[in-house]
Design a protein around this nucleic acid. Sequence first.
DNA 1: AATGAATGAGCGTTCATTCAT
DNA 2: GATGAATGAACGCTCATTCAT
Lengths: 221, 221, 221, 221
Amino acid sequence: MTSDEEPSQHGECIRDAARTRAEILDVATQEFARAGYDGARVDEIAARTRTTKRMIYYYFGGKEQLFTAVLERAYGVIREAEQQLDVDHPDPVAAIRRLAELTFDHHEQHPDFIRLVSIENIHRAQHIAGSEKLGKIGSPALDVIRRILASGQESGLFTADVDAVDLHAMISSFCFFRVSNRHTFGALFGRDLLDRGRRAHYRAMLGDMVIAYLTAERTTD
Amino acid sequence: MTSDEEPSQHGECIRDAARTRAEILDVATQEFARAGYDGARVDEIAARTRTTKRMIYYYFGGKEQLFTAVLERAYGVIREAEQQLDVDHPDPVAAIRRLAELTFDHHEQHPDFIRLVSIENIHRAQHIAGSEKLGKIGSPALDVIRRILASGQESGLFTADVDAVDLHAMISSFCFFRVSNRHTFGALFGRDLLDRGRRAHYRAMLGDMVIAYLTAERTTD
Amino acid sequence: MTSDEEPSQHGECIRDAARTRAEILDVATQEFARAGYDGARVDEIAARTRTTKRMIYYYFGGKEQLFTAVLERAYGVIREAEQQLDVDHPDPVAAIRRLAELTFDHHEQHPDFIRLVSIENIHRAQHIAGSEKLGKIGSPALDVIRRILASGQESGLFTADVDAVDLHAMISSFCFFRVSNRHTFGALFGRDLLDRGRRAHYRAMLGDMVIAYLTAERTTD
Amino acid sequence: MTSDEEPSQHGECIRDAARTRAEILDVATQEFARAGYDGARVDEIAARTRTTKRMIYYYFGGKEQLFTAVLERAYGVIREAEQQLDVDHPDPVAAIRRLAELTFDHHEQHPDFIRLVSIENIHRAQHIAGSEKLGKIGSPALDVIRRILASGQESGLFTADVDAVDLHAMISSFCFFRVSNRHTFGALFGRDLLDRGRRAHYRAMLGDMVIAYLTAERTTD
DNA sequence: AATGAATGAGCGTTCATTCAT
DNA sequence: GATGAATGAACGCTCATTCAT
C-alpha cells in the first residue's frame, strides 16, 4: 500500500495537486497564447485538462489570477533560462555578439511567451503590476549585458555612452518584433521573418547591428 | 419636403451614411485599440455612436468585418502619411537618419495604430489576409528606403549587402517595440521608453544604430 | 391581414411585449413570494414563462430590477384597491371600524403581497429606496384615515392626540402580523391565525381594539 | 500530556467543542439575520469563525440544521428572558401595561431575533416544525398574560371574552411590526418607527391600546 | 473526534447576432 | 435603405456539500 507503485493516498493527492496545477497552467498558457486574454475560454482550458472548471477556480481563484499565474511561470522559465546564459569570452565584441545570438534563439524558441507578453501589453501590464512575484523577478540577461558593456567600455572597444537597459531594449526589440509581428509583416511585405532559410541571415544581422552601434564613432552628440 | 429646412432625403442619407460609417469607424478604432478584438464590445461601440448597434451590422456585416474595416482605414491613414515622407537629401546618410527619425516620430504619434497591429498579430493577421484592400496597400516608406539604400550603396557609403525590407524591419522593430512593449518593459525594468526626457536620446540612438550598421565594415562571413 | 382575428404582426408584437412583460411579472411575483429574493431562481421564473431567461434581462435588466418591478406593481395594485375604499359613513366610529375591517380583508386576500413586503424588509427596503415610482406612491388608505380621524376628533368622539400614521401602523400591524407571522405563531402556540372559524372573531377584535383606543379616556399623559 | 500546559486532550476538546459550537452559532445568527436563509453564506460564517467550514458540517450537519440550531438558541434566549418577567402587581391594569411595555422593550432590544422570525416565516416555519426542541418550548410570557387576564376578568376590570393567546398576538403584532416593518414603513411613510424621540409615545400608545381594549364595553355582537 | 482537499450542479449575466418589417 | 425588438448560446463564477483519511 505504501510501496513505490501505490504510494499513500495522501502523498498521491499532494503530488496530484501540484501536477494538476501544472497541467492547468500548461493548458492555460497554450489557450491564452492562442486566443488572447479575452478570447481564451475557461471552459476550454478545463476541457483540455483532466480536472474540471471548478478546480481552476479552486486553485487560482479566477481567470484573471490564472492569467497572472501563467505570466509568472512563463517569466520564471525565461529568467531561469537567462541564468544559464554562458557568454564568457575575453573579447567583449565576441561576448556581446554571443549574447545577441542567444537572445535571438531564445525569442525564436518561445513564440508563445512572446504572444503572452504582447497580450499583457494590450492589457497595459496590469497583471505584472498586480503581481508581487513579477515585480522583483529581475533580469539575469540585463546583468550579463551590464558586465560585458563595462568590460568593452573599459577597454575602449565600445563607445562609452551606452546604457545596459537601452542596449537590452535594442536587442530585444529586433528579436521580439521578428516573432510578434511576423504575421502582419508577412502579410504586408510578403516576407516571413521566421523563414528557416533566412534565419542565419537575421541572426548575423542582429549581431552586426549591435556591434556596429557599439563600436562606431559617433557623429552626433 | 425638398426645401432648405428639409433637404432631399436621398442626399441627406448618402451624406449621413458616409458620416455615420466614419463615426462608427472612429469609435470602433478607439474601442478595439483600447480592449483588443475580443475585449471590444459591439454594444459599447454603438453606445458611443449616434446610431444603433443594428447599424453596425447594416453597414459592416459583423464585428469581424468592422475590425477589418478599422484596420483598413488605419493602414490607409498610415500609408498616406508615409506618402508625405520627405527625406530628399543628397547625402544618403543624412537621408536615412531622417527616415529613421520620421518613422520614430510616426510610431510615437500613433500608439492606437501600434495597438491595432499588435492585436492583429495576436490574431495571426487573419483580417489582413482576408482583406483585398490590405493585400495591395504597399508601403511608400519601403520605396523611400529602397531609393536611399540604392543611392548609398552605389556611392559606396553603405555596405552592399543590405536589403530594404530587412532595413525596414530593423527600423520598425525598434520604433514599434518602444511603443508596443512600453508597459511590460516599464513594469519589469522600471524605465518608461516613452518618457519625454529620454525621447531625443532614443531618437538619436536609432539613427546611430542604423547608420553604424549601414556604414560598418563587416567582420562576419 | 389587419382584421380582428389576425392583427398586424407589429401590433401583435407590441401587444405581446406588454403581455410577456406582464407574464414575467406574474410568475416572478409568485416565485419571489414563494422563496424570497435570494431563494428565487431566474431560471425557474423563465421556465414557467412562455419566453426565455434572456427576455427577463432584456425587459428588466436583472434579478434586482425584476424584484423592484414586482414590488412596484404589487404596491400599485394595493394602492389602486385602496383608492376604491368606500368607508363613507356619517358616524366616525362606524367608518373607522369599516376601514379596519377592509384593511383586515385586504391583508388576508393578498398573502403574497405580505410576503413580498416581509422580504423587502429583510433587505432593508433597498429596492423601494432605489425606485422612483415607489417613492411617491403615497397611500390612499392613509388619506381616508386622516379624514375619519379629523371628523371623529372634531366631534369629540375620538381622543384628540392620535396621529393618522400611527393609527395606520396600529391597524396594519395587527393585519400584517396575522398573515406574516402565521407560520411561527401557529407552530409555537398551536393556533392558526388564518383559521376560517376564527376569522370573524379576529376581524371584530381589531375593530374593537381600534375603537376602544380611539374612544377611551386616557389615564396616562 | 495531562500536565497543566497541555490539559487532557479530551477535556480540552469538549470545552473547545462547546466553545466552537457557540462561536459558530453566534456568527451564524448574525449572518442569517443579516442576509436571510438563502442570502447567508456558509463560507462567510466559517470565515468569521476560528474554525473551518468543515466544522460547521461536522457539528451541525448542514446549513438547514445550522439555521434550526440558530433558531433554537434564539428562542431559548428569548424564553429565558421571558421567564425573568416580573409584572407582579395587585392591579391587573398596571400589570398588563407593564407586560406590554416589557414586550415592547424586548422586541426593540432584539432586532436580529425579529429578523430571524421573519425569515422563518418566509420559510413557512419549516425549521420550527422540524425541531423537537422548539415544539415544546412554550411561552412564559403567555403564562403571565394568562394569569393577569384571569385576575382582571375575575375582578371585573377586564371584559370577560378575551383569550390569552389572542391578547399575546395583539401585543406582539404591534411590537413586532414596529421592528420588522421599520424599513418599508419608513421608506413609504417617511416615519421611522424606531426613532428614539417617538419611543415613549409608541410605548404608551401600546399600553393605552391594550388597556382600552381590555376595559372597554363591547358594542359588537 | 477532527479536517484539508476537492467537487457537481447550477447561478446570474452577457455576448454577437438576426428577425420581421 | 433603415431599424426596434428579440434571442440562442455560452460566459465567468459560486454555491452547499462530500470525499478520504
